[in-house]
Design a protein around this nucleic acid. Structure first.
Lengths: 233, 233
DNA sequence: TGTACATCAGTGAACGCGCGTTCACTGATGTAC
DNA sequence: TGTACATCAGTGAACGCGCGTTCACTGATGTAC
């Protein structure tokens, strides 16, 4: 709760800037995002924006963090809401939540999962928010594993991949995801890339002229990948 | 073979423009591609480029078609070269050829498989070249099917997806790919999105801080998807 | 083989646009005594 | 409660840049007779 009128005004103006920028992003895409256009819409001289945001890049960073947080929250909510359902149904629920968010916010999706914005280099701050989605997805697998409902095959993994996955498990520490066997983690990674691959292809128009019922293809693919991970139900 | 000196000069200049544009694309990305910069590098006044190219969009279209053709040719070559190998090995060979091309030409990959270029709308001409890669991949599956080496499960498909796939089969006419059973086509579509999803994530940095041995992850995922399609070997 | 005309490549100037960022400034808001 | 000073928001002008595209033009190359 901001104490003074000035602090309140500052919070409001900052929010107005990011909101406007987000709306511009939604209409024109990241490459077209301009501080001058934002200032214009807020009826303020362009240099005034610099009181609130250090540069165009910083504004982009704010939007990226927002987007990661939004899709991360959507995924976490779906994971929580589906808590009592079968593992495969949960995977589908979380995947569907991610896709629904992407379809509703295509430019924000493109901002974080599309080609990198030219000339922009993501700072460290974006890493944390970026992992929320992945952890929500992997959490479903970990829950199944903890409940003894994850079929493992114990496939032989290439040693380089094995090392990477061991490192991931170590980094996760106490997180239940860290308790997953490496082969389950590997299969989840495959499913993870499939998930975002299908969303990107749908959104970026790669399936135009081929698929009309994207819902059906998505559900079929996602169920198949849940089975591949070893999730029953 | 161009007859006159003028025609030869025109062909050379046209090639010089697309080559230069391609190089700029490789360095700075599609959004930064500018006719003026191309003209500057060719030591020619900016309006001169308009003798060869109607607009910036047309130049982009040329580059997009080139990129689709390049990756399509790489995929077809791999399919041909692996002609006598086991179906799963062939799928891996074609997938690897696509990934190798993508790693060598990241901006061209982003141009065709990344987020759409803002303000640019792909014309019809790009559809043909775009399908070459997909047909090369599906051709491997079709060859396996024709040789009786494709395990089919005949899974029940949602009716909407079923209709889309029947349409695809019809559109393909005599092409052997059209002879594939719908459930195999559906599984191949899942593998197709997984393939490009993993390449995009690697290229766009989504696996940074997680995966170091991308070769190993790619091979593991791609083999898993080949098995999912039902390709033996 | 030579001439008249048509075609085309490239020039140079211009139009009109937008951008990010800096800087000295005015005037309002907040703080310390 | 009142005053002096510090902080901060927003202004307006400017810098320096780049872009796509048009247009009237010159001079070289090609073509038809």
């Amino acid at each position: 709760v901001p104490a003074t009128a000035r602090a309140r005004a500052r919070a409001e103006m900052t929010a107005a800037i990011t909101d406007t920028a987000r709306r511009h992003l939604a209409v024109d895409g990241a490459a077209a995002l301009s501080l001058r256009a934002v200032a214009r819409e807020l009826d303020v001289v362009s240099s005034a924006v610099y009181r609130y945001v250090a540069s165009r890049d910083e504004l982009l960073t704010l939007l990226i963090i927002d987007a990661y947080d939004a899709v991360g929250a959507a995924a976490e909510d779906a994971a929580t809401a589906s808590r009592r359902r079968a593992p495969a149904a949960r995977w589908l629920a979380v995947a569907t939540a991610i896709r629904t968010w992407a379809l509703a916010n295509p430019h924000e999706y493109a901002l974080i999962y599309g080609s990198p914005v030219p000339g922009y280099h993501a700072p460290e701050q974006t890493i944390g928010p970026a992992t929320r989605v992945s952890l929500a997805l992997l959490g479903v697998v970990a829950d199944a594993g903890a409940a003894g409902r994850l079929m493992t095959v114990d496939a032989r993994l290439p040693s380089g991949l094995r090392r990477d996955l061991d490192q991931v498990r170590e980094d996760l520490g106490d997180d239940p995801v860290g308790a997953l066997p490496p082969d389950a983690l590997a299969r989840a990674l495959t499913a993870w890339t499939q998930l975002f691959g299908s969303i990107s292809f749908e959104l970026f128009g790669q399936t135009r002229n081929v698929i009309t019922d994207h819902d059906a293809l998505f559900e079929t693919s996602t169920r198949a990948m849940a089975a591949h991970i070893g999730l029953p139900g």
